[in-house]
Design a protein around this nucleic acid. Structure first.
Length: 704
DNA sequence: GTTAGGG
DNA sequence: CCCTAAC
């Protein structure tokens, strides 16, 4: 059998042994090991605590409704995308922990392209989007179970251009108001903030509070416009190389051209980084982080440093300004956790796993996820998800009707400790999603797995005209790849400084009463893993419940989109509904296209003749016309075929490959493993014969 | 741009 | 399929 093994693995084994490579995982890990200053407390915390007090009294009334889950929906109407998110509170033992549950639904109606004004706005940003986010934050006092509801309404618009849509009605009070209210210990003030033209954030006025107890804030999230490009992460860290890599590609700079990779590349990283406040929540146990790939691009702490160094917003970059302002307002609910997202912040949690220290502090509360954090596999935590399925309804020949059930958004990686509450998890997810949606997104259209970048093409031209084709259509909501960052505004934006009185370092204050509250009854978590990854592995079985939770959440979130009949088809492309595909993958990965038996046969045929190691030739010979099959794909397929041939039929998945082909695979593999394909040149199929006894077993091939 | 491998 | 390293 040694011999056999040699035949089967000889080549590979040899290569492997001789080519030591540092596991990528290690590299990634290293990248993620950054810590953030723990001294910063998120301003939001303060806000939360205050709000919690205010709301405490009313917790009762909301209990019923909130207990279950919040409901939010995003509606996309003309020119406006409205995103309403409600977070439900749950009693928390720890004040730092926030529980939120949210559901998002998106209703898209007539995405109008006709409005020139709006179009303009849309152009580089997702569109005018109004994001209303109601956050309920619970703050609990020590042992007492209380519920506080803090609701935020976040209105988002395409601020970049400085215009605030008139249709933002019903928006909650402006941001400043909220901040003020907070500052005043719950006293609500109403002020009007007006959107800044150049500023990333704009506040909506005239937004009535739904409930006195709810603090509503509306603000405009930074939008990806050309101007936004300046986000630190982008400027500093994004390697151009990544962009250049795309095959199909893209012009960097132009959002329409963004490639899948490009978008993926940018995804959240920019958004989160930029938006995330430098501050850090002390008790926060939840870590969010982007995929390792994002890390490298992270701006690091530079921003943070700048921020601290200069209290003045002015000194900051415009974009940063916005964020900072946010901080000042202590408002940044969304960002609060997000900051952890930052590369630099990843490690952050206090004592958290991320920092590599085993946290076992007494103060830890059970609800708070502290110690062992369970890293959710991306699958589990992907917030995103929105896989969409379009139902096509062909009522008229000239129109394509799409029923978009959901959008998929870029993949998010979230890591929370296993002791984290469901509520905190939800919140975490919510924040990530909100940040994503709130920031800058645009709709991507996929057709047969390819992005349709040419907006000028008609559906018919794109082949999206028949019902049959609709199955291959999909669309995604993705971060705007950002083009050029908006020029920095030299003027300060008054609006941005609602809480200007509060020094930036306010966030660093740890003395906030609420924050410091310790819960007597809190159950100290047992010391756990020092390493999050280990934690994840070792606790794998424990994650099941969380997984379920996530699943549920996904389900709820997936309810999301409803297309209005009249919507402009141009704007929405049908996305191939592939629920199996991870939502996160939809946005970025090519759609999976399993090899058909005939393709496998062609591949086998080619490899038999050309051997392994000549994938380009294989491609040209057998798949020249299959644009979606790259030589790398063929190579990978061969790899999997070899593997498939080695495993028992029971272990095989997918469309069964005829054993005959697998036998040929093994034969060819064995043969070429012994012969350097490059040296031997062509071998015709006829030259390879497999003895019956050997076939499919040891893979020994005999050349006759 | 290809190839080989790990993920 | 993706991503990288190494050519």
């Amino acid at each position: 059998m040694v011999f056999k093994k040699r035949l089967d693995y000889g080549f590979d084994a040899f290569s492997v042994s001789n080519v030591p490579r540092a596991p990528r995982s290690i590299r990634r890990r290293d990248r993620t090991k950054r810590t953030v200053d723990d001294n910063q407390i998120c301003a939001f915390e303060l806000l939360a605590s205050l709000a919690g007090k205010l709301l405490e009294e009313k917790s009762e009334s909301y209990a019923a409704s909130n207990v279950s889950e919040g409901h939010g929906h995003v509606s996309i109407g003309k020119d406006v995308v409205k995103h309403e998110i409600e977070y439900d509170d749950k009693p928390l033992k720890t004040e730092c922990v926030e529980h939120l549950s949210c559901k998002e639904s998106i209703v898209a109606s007539d995405w109008t392209t006709g409005n020139s004004d709006n179009l303009k706005k849309f152009k580089h940003s997702e569109n005018n989007a109004i994001l209303e986010c109601a956050l309920t934050k619970m703050q609990s006092s020590y042992s007492e179970q209380t519920k506080g509801d803090l609701k935020f309404a976040i209105c988002k618009d395409n601020v970049a251009y400085g215009s605030f849509p008139d249709d933002l009605e019903g928006c909650s009070p402006n941001f400043r108001e909220l901040c003020d209210g907070i500052c005043d210990n719950g006293v609500k003030r109403e002020r009007e903030a007006k959107g800044l033209e150049s500023g990333p954030f704009t506040f909506a006025n005239n937004c009535p509070l739904k409930d006195p107890l709810h603090l509503s804030m509306s603000f405009l999230a930074p939008i990806n416009t050309d101007r936004d490009v300046k986000l630190p992460s982008r400027n500093d860290s994004v390697p151009n190389a990544s962009f250049s890599r795309h095959r199909n590609n893209i012009k960097i700079g132009s959002r329409d051209d963004d490639d899948e990779k490009f978008s993926r590349f940018n995804k959240l990283s920019n958004r989160f980084k930029a938006s995330r406040p430098p501050t850090r929540i002390e008790d926060q146990r939840i870590r969010k982080f982007l995929t390792s790939k994002y890390w490298k691009e992270a701006p690091k702490l530079r921003d943070f440093e700048n921020f601290r160094a200069d209290g003045e917003i002015k000194s900051l970059h415009r974009k940063r300004k916005t964020y900072y302002n946010y901080d000042k307002c202590q408002y940044d609910t969304l960002h609060k956790r997000r900051k952890l997202f930052d590369h630099s912040s990843i490690v952050t949690s206090d004592g958290g796993i991320g920092s590599g220290s085993v946290s076992n502090s007494p103060e830890k509360v059970k609800n708070e996820n502290k110690n062992s954090s369970v890293a959710m596999s991306h699958g589990a935590c992907e917030i995103s998800s929105l896989t969409g399925q379009l139902a096509s309804d062909k009522s008229s020949d000239s129109h394509v009707k799409l029923n978009i059930k959901s959008f998929r958004i870029p993949e998010l990686y979230i890591e929370v400790s296993k002791s984290a509450t469901v509520g905190s998890l939800k919140m975490t997810v919510m924040e990530a999603v909100t940040a994503l949606l709130g920031g800058r997104i645009h709709v991507g259209v996929l057709f047969h797995g390819k992005k349709l970048r040419d907006d000028s093409r008609t559906l018919s031209q794109s082949g999206i005209s028949s019902e049959d084709n609709l199955d291959a259509l999909g669309f995604t909501l993705e971060p705007n790849p950002g083009i050029a960052p908006p020029p920095l505004c030299s003027e300060d934006h008054p609006l941005l400084l609602p809480c200007g009185a509060a020094p930036p370092n306010l966030t660093s204050t740890r003395t906030t009463p609420a924050m410091d509250i310790k819960i007597p009854n809190a159950t100290a978590d047992p010391p756990l893993l020092t390493n999050s990854e280990k934690a994840m592995d070792s606790n794998y079985k424990h994650t099941s419940s969380q997984t379920d939770i996530l699943t549920d959440q996904k389900l709820s979130e997936s309810r999301a989109l409803v297309l209005v009949p009249g919507m402009n088809v141009e704007a929405l492309s049908v996305v191939p509904a592939n629920h199996k595909i991870r939502k996160s993958e939809l946005a970025q990965r090519r759609t999976r296209r399993p090899f058909s038996v005939s393709e496998v046969e062609a591949l086998v045929q080619a490899v038999e003749e050309l051997g392994t190691g000549r994938w380009r030739d294989v491609k040209l010979q057998a798949f020249e016309n299959a644009d979606h099959r790259t030589y790398v794909d063929l190579k990978d397929k061969w790899k999997t075929l070899v593997h498939t041939a080695k495993i028992s039929p029971q272990q095989r998945r997918g469309e069964p490959v005829p054993q005959e082909l697998l036998d040929r695979v093994m034969t060819a593999h064995a043969y070429w493993s012994q012969h350097q394909a490059k040296q031997l040149g062509k071998h015709h199929t006829g030259t390879l014969k497999i003895t019956d006894s050997q076939a499919g077993k040891n893979g020994v091939a005999v050349v006759i």
